[in-house]
Amino acid sequence: MQPSKLLKPELYSAGSGDGDGATARLKGGRCRCGYVFFPMQTYGCERCGSHGDPLTPYELSTNGTLLAEATVHLHADKNRPAPFTIVKVALDDGPVIRTLLADDSARVAPGQRVTGRLVPTTQSESGETVLDHRFSAAS
């Protein structure tokens, strides 16, 4: 298997025992007040303002339900060549997040189940495959 690395390891990890295309886990946070958020941060809780010890890392499942999708036809930033599809997903663990749909995902529509995976995007200078988080229609 090719060596690989994560594009944004501060935001997600591979599910245990998985390789390329694996189910992803998201690095969220939880406040003592019960508020669950993504990504983890220690500045302070948006709901209650607590900071420091009350905020702890809280791993989130990437299983969720699609709320909305939009295929982007125009995008000025050359680092993100259009077209691509953005999805808004209500995670089973609480937070609502928005990010890219995997290029090889089946088409999706609101109400559908989706799951996050780590998919190969580019090669690093040292030849590693760079994995980034994408959603796909749940199989």
Partner: peptide, 16 residues
């Protein structure tokens, strides 16, 4: 950090 906020400009926020 963020997953892909750089890919979600206002017209895409409202397209969603």
């Amino acid at each position: 950090g963020h997953l892909a906020e750089d890919a979600i400009v206002p017209f895409t926020h409202f397209a969603l």
